[in-house]
């Protein structure tokens, strides 16, 4: 077990959820949390108190939608999937994120700039 798990940064969680749904198709809340943890190789822990409000926020913006269905294990679960608007937004958010990352990178290692 890793000694420290980093909490997911506010704002980055939205993009993680969107990417997860893009990659996995319809998925329930637990599945999304597990997937994020797995992808981060257990470096991140997803707090349900943040996850569910985040899912709600994305729904309110009509980026994702939810409906009751059956999970992979045959259990009744609420499944989230990307809307058409969501598909579009994933791209935008990705670009945004990359811009931030590259900017941050320049701050962190200014020597490499030229």
């Amino acid at each position: 077990m890793t000694a420290e798990k980093t909490d997911v940064l506010q704002g980055t969680l939205d993009l993680m959820i969107l990417k997860t749904l893009q990659a996995m198709g319809p998925l329930h809340g637990y599945g999304i949390a597990r997937r994020i943890e797995q992808v981060s190789v257990d470096a991140l822990s997803v707090n349900q108190g943040t996850l569910y409000p985040a899912l709600l926020r994305l729904q309110q913006r009509k980026w994702i939608r939810s409906e009751w269905g059956t999970s992979g294990t045959g259990r009744r679960a609420k499944l989230y999937s990307l809307t058409r608007l969501g598909q579009k937004k994933v791209g935008e958010e990705e670009e945004n994120w990359e811009r931030i990352v590259s900017t941050m990178a320049r701050f962190l290692s200014p020597a490499e700039q030229d």
Binding site: H28, G29, Y30, G31, A33, Q48, Y52, R57, Q59, Q60, R61, K62, S71, T73, R75, R76, A77, K78
Partner: peptide
């Protein structure tokens, strides 16, 4: 969209609460 969604939510709190209960329960079960 957010405001619209929030204000419509005012009118069926009961159903949404039950929905949330069930979803969280299914999360734990999973």
């Amino acid at each position: 969209r957010e405001i619209f969604s929030r204000s419509t939510a005012l009118f069926h709190r009961q159903r949404l609460n039950e929905d949330l209960d069930e979803e969280l329960e299914s999360h734990v079960e999973a």
